[in-house]
Design a protein around this nucleic acid. Structure first.
Lengths: 190, 190
DNA sequence: TCCGCTGGCTAATGACTGTTAGCCGACTTC
DNA sequence: GAAGTCGGCTAACAGTCATTAGCCAGCGGA
């Protein structure tokens, strides 16, 4: 349990200062102990980053799979995928932020693993779009570019979303799903 | 001139390793001199980052203004703004990447300045959209969210765009402008 | 009561970093 | 040709940091 507490504190510090600029003493202070004491619970600073990022990517993928499971209509599948994507980035802003920003600081066996998960995720969106195109429901010149655009607008949520004030999670999820559908040529005339 | 060479090298290193992880020795090595020799041309590492980010933001704003100058049709104004935004992020990937990623490492008088420029830029897009809505040409529930989505999909270009292979700058600019127009409810039926 | 574990602590290690000081060769300028 | 500037260099400074070593209080169980 102390391990989880430390991981959460590390995440918050990595988000605020960045991995390189965060010291073990900072993380320790956030849970009320000294830097060296962290090593009773954790192998290294790098391991902290790796576990945090890996968990985030797996949760994102799991959320996607759950969202589209059992849905067959391409429009509905894409809508649900985008909503899940956006909600994840609104709810887990900090995790998503660190996952995107600090990938660079991940050393090698881990970096490759996370990049793999990441391209799996992108591929799922690309497939959702090509399916819609094949079904004659979507109208888009490049499924790849559409997937990038949809993913990017969702990742941006982690940067600008605020729990206090501004549009809420529901509104953002609905709006961005609507944008995504419009992008692929489906217009609900909302 | 040596100063410019150093700034360019610093930019490349900041992009590759991140500001915190880049040492003055790294930057020196990239221009063929030792770390301390940099101080004959530059005041500090922080000043290098500040000048690089500031120049990037000003170029982005200038590009936007030039793109929409003299154009009155809201559709055309938005299209040109998005194309300029996307082209900038494709052509100046590295600058844009560092500008977005390393804002955190900028210390205080500079950070506030850059954040100011950044919200100016965002405001210009929001206004472009509200103008289109007022003119009855755009149909969008929240101009703010639309502006965020459009800016985010363009910033993403700096991350995934590759000069070699993949879609070229023209195709990307055209596609993303098309996506942006669809988002705000204009559909050219392409 | 004693043993051993858990989870803190301080001190030390070893390495690295931005920056400054001071030296010097090569040109430029008078 | 003397003087000065430019732009390099090495050495040194003053930190900082992740990590390890070794100590110890408290506590649960025998």
């Amino acid at each position: 349990m102390r391990g989880e507490e430390i991981r959460a504190a590390a995440l918050a510090e990595f988000a605020r200062r960045g991995y390189e600029a965060t010291t073990m003493a900072d993380i320790g202070a956030a849970v009320g102990i000294r830097g060296p004491s962290l090593y009773k619970h954790v192998r290294s600073k790098q391991e902290l980053l790796a576990s945090v990022i890996d968990a985030t990517m797996r949760a994102l993928l799991a959320g996607h799979d759950a969202a589209v499971a059992g849905v067959t209509d391409p429009v509905e599948r894409l809508r649900r995928a985008v909503e899940a994507h956006v909600r994840f980035h609104a709810r887990h802003r900090v995790e998503a932020f660190v996952g995107n920003r600090e990938l660079r600081s991940l050393t090698e066996p881990h970096r490759a693993g996370v990049l793999g998960l990441r391209s799996d995720y992108e591929l799922r969106f690309r497939r959702l779009i090509t399916e819609g195109v094949s079904a004659g429901v979507f109208r888009v010149a490049s499924p790849r570019l559409a997937a990038y655009a949809i993913l990017d607008q969702g990742m941006g949520v982690a940067v600008w979303f605020r729990e206090d004030g501004g549009p809420g999670e529901n509104e953002v999820a609905w709006q961005l799903a609507e944008f995504a559908l419009r992008m692929v040529g489906v217009d609900g005339r909302v």
